[in-house]
Design a protein around this nucleic acid. Structure first.
Lengths: 236, 236
DNA sequence: GCTTTTTCTGACGCTTGGTCAAGAATCCTG
DNA sequence: CAGGATTCTTGACCAAGCGTCAGAAAAAGC
């Protein structure tokens, strides 16, 4: 297993090429435009060969999704390293989440498709598990910051409020907001021209509601965001 | 147009039957299980006849979605009539939203499918517009409550915070939370066994964060929810 | 160089979305 | 109510796409 024959090397490279092609087709032509025939034509191999790599279309989609959420995990890890008060570290996570949805606009498409039960039940346990585990690790990073906040007494959780429950709220607000922003064309029409800023604003209000120090009135979020970008989000 | 021939009457009835059958197939067999052939077989008409009613599969799906969000609009209208402080009326909307996702579990499936760009671009302007308008009217009801809250001085909005912006936050949190709850099987695993209650809790925190009186510590939400159910959510 | 193993191919079967010409039912009018 | 005009219904048909697999081609082993 350690030594790969040239052939095996080639196969491994091809797998990545298939994914790259699939992603570009998905972005350009959407879910219905993504056909095995089309992928095969673009990578210049026959359909059968593609099926040697991925048992079906859904496996390709989930493989793409794994790549994408993996990238998010990396971004979250980096954001969590921001040095500062617990609340500011959470802000850094928020910034990372925003950068993520900006950089990987196809993420929502992928997620939507994967949520369809008919799609979900066709993918292998193994990949199912893999994507789940990445998701959980993302969650864990965020929950860790909440735990740190409690430890540092920046935040006092009520009885039977666990860090995970708090994360659920922040996560819901953020992902819900981004999802609405990503799909709805009617937002500007309602005077909601900058959904990202709105999500930040609401996250701040939510944290204020939980009494997470320091309150939003006590720091300059614009400056802080700039600092976050410089220190943990710019790709060196 | 006023007088329908017996034949026209029959056709109209059939249209509803097609939708009913389609909905049941969708619930039982998911998106991929929903085929025109299957619908045709179940309503005992030929495929061609189904195509006389709906130009394609997507039109059936959007018609189902219109029925469903129409039902939500009704529930919101009713909830908004709750008599009480502005914040309690907003709570009533929250209760309605919860009842809605409980009663129409297929809603998320429908919404997911409709959000796929490849699906969206196949449906008629007219139906696109129709579903959009219902969505906006829902929004309006909620924004109306916020405006009432401002008028009653229960709530003071910061500079350049419009009622719509506030609604965006509440909507994001609620829809995001419900969406996560609807699809993720890993929630109980993390100790998050009652996502609906969690969403309430977080909505309350968000309102607290905006200083919407009365604060969550000043009323008994359980009692209030019961009252809401009796007065505006039980079906007469 | 020859055999064995692995990999690649594209024709094939099958399902499904969508069309349409021809036949059936319904409506309309004298 | 007859019979022509209109509208509706049907199912064969086409195209497209998923997934398979026997045989061809290439690589590996000896």
């Amino acid at each position: 297993m350690i030594q790969l024959t040239p052939k095996q090397e080639e196969i491994k490279l091809r797998e990545q090429r298939i994914l790259d092609v699939a992603r570009s087709v998905l972005i350009q032509h959407g879910y219905h435009g993504l056909s095995m025939e089309r992928i095969a034509a673009k990578v210049e191999y026959s359909k059968g060969t593609i099926y040697n790599h991925f048992a079906n279309k859904e496996e390709i989609i989930v493989a793409l999704a794994i790549e994408t959420v993996g990238r998010r995990l990396e971004m979250f890890k980096q954001a969590a390293q921001f040095r500062g008060a617990s609340r500011f570290r959470m802000l850094a996570i928020g910034q990372a989440a925003e950068k993520f949805v900006r950089d990987y606009a196809d993420f929502f498409t992928l997620e939507q498709i994967l949520q369809l039960p008919s799609v979900r039940q066709k993918i292998s346990q193994q990949r199912q598990h893999e994507i789940n585990s990445i998701e959980v690790r993302c969650m864990d990073i965020v929950a860790g910051i909440v735990r740190d906040a409690v430890a540092a007494e920046d935040l006092v959780l009520g009885p039977d409020v666990t860090p995970e429950k708090l994360v659920f709220g922040i996560w819901s607000l953020t992902s819900g907001g981004f999802a609405i922003a990503a799909r709805s064309g009617t937002l500007p029409h309602l005077g909601l021209d900058n959904p990202f800023e709105l999500v930040h604003h609401h996250t701040a209000a939510l944290m204020d509601g939980f009494g997470w120090a320091p309150k939003s009135s006590e720091y300059d979020s614009n400056k802080l965001n700039q600092k976050i970008h410089c220190e943990v989000l710019s790709n060196e």
